[in-house]
Design a binder for these strands. Structure first.
Length: 313
DNA sequence: CTTTAGACGAAGTATTA
DNA sequence: TAATAATTCGTCTAAAG
């Protein structure tokens, strides 16, 4: 279950062609609802986000329960309205994982879900947790698809007895953080901690606990995932974005990115790309948008320029 | 005055003994 | 558990534009 939640079918089918270069390689930024062409860097405001439900249903009754035409999910029926149920048919809506590993994974998912249902104690915990999850999600502006995954992660953590002895709020925040990573639109710990009811430090501890104990595989945040957010904050040109992405790709090949802060890499790449493409921003601007310090931007960009042999001006 | 460069120690993280 | 290495961050100083 490397990717237990895929994009909805209708989004996958809804492939679009870049107006500028004709390719189909869009990098989506659901936070802003924009798609950015990875070939030419042009930004297309995404209609696809609203063409269908952002959530995924694991079963037919789930689909019916979630449809927006009905009453909004109520917390008083937390075991129905807000819970994610995995149906018995093996195979999920995005048609991944229909045999072998995936099948076993879905079986495991289902087992843990049922286990967490049946404990009445957990229900009370879930009610409290979902209140915070809704609050934090809307404050952070995460799409509901990510919120659903976060709920799933939290339920699993609860089922595996990881929450016990730690603050619910911290675990909720950690679930959202991990969910963002699963969906390849990572947020930074600081960003989430700023709106959560816990310190960054304990949030990080919760994240580690879940990662270790709950068998959640969230890909490490990649610098690429931060580029679109930073660049649109700074209104950088498309060609600059594209340049930055190619710098990142080059840097990854040489292996100088491992162990470094991804948004630092992203910021430094955009800084370099800005100079190269004559679409320059100051280190301070880049640092603010990247949510790292100027020092980090400097160190990273010096490193990249030296190791990649980029000539500036 | 603003931007950039670089040095220092503090703090948090990951790995190893 | 303790020690170690590598990293980011905040602050400070200095130079260049």
């Amino acid at each position: 279950m490397v990717r237990q939640v895929g994009y909805p079918i209708n989004q996958m089918k809804n492939e679009r062609v870049c107006i500028a270069c004709g390719c189909r390689n869009f990098y989506r930024d659901p936070v802003r609802g924009e798609s950015i062409c990875t070939s030419c860097g042009c930004v297309a405001t995404g209609h696809e986000l609203n063409t269908g439900p952002e959530w995924r249903a694991f079963s037919a009754e789930e689909w019916a329960a979630r449809a927006r035409t009905g009453a909004p999910p109520r917390l008083t029926i937390a075991d129905k309205g807000l819970s994610t149920t995995i149906g018995r048919s093996y195979g999920d809506a995005s048609r991944y994982c229909t045999t072998g590993h995936g099948r076993a994974a879905i079986y495991r998912m289902r087992k843990w879900q049922i286990r967490s249902w049946t404990h009445g104690l957990n229900l009370r915990n879930l009610k409290v947790a979902f209140v915070e999850m809704n609050r934090l999600s809307s404050q952070l502006g995460v799409p509901s698809r990510i919120k659903e995954t976060a709920a799933f992660i939290y339920r699993r953590a609860l089922a595996k007895r990881i929450v016990r002895g730690h603050s619910i709020d911290g675990m909720v925040a950690a679930s959202i953080y991990l969910s963002c990573r699963v969906h390849e639109t990572p947020r930074q710990l600081d960003e989430i901690a700023a709106h959560a009811k816990v310190e960054r430090k304990s949030l990080a501890r919760c994240v580690r606990l879940i990662l270790r104990g709950a068998d959640i595989r969230a890909p490490l945040p990649s610098a690429r995932n931060f580029v679109s957010r930073i660049s649109s904050d700074l209104s950088l040109e498309g060609r600059t974005v594209r340049k930055a992405l190619s710098i990142i790709a080059g840097a990854k090949k040489t292996g100088i990115t491992v162990g470094k802060h991804p948004s630092g890499i992203a910021g430094a790449s955009l800084y370099i790309a800005g100079i190269v493409e004559d679409d320059r921003r100051t280190q301070r601007e880049i640092a603010n948008a990247s949510r790292v310090t100027e020092v980090t931007i400097r160190n990273r960009y010096k490193d990249m320029v030296r190791k990649l042999g980029i000539i500036l001006e």
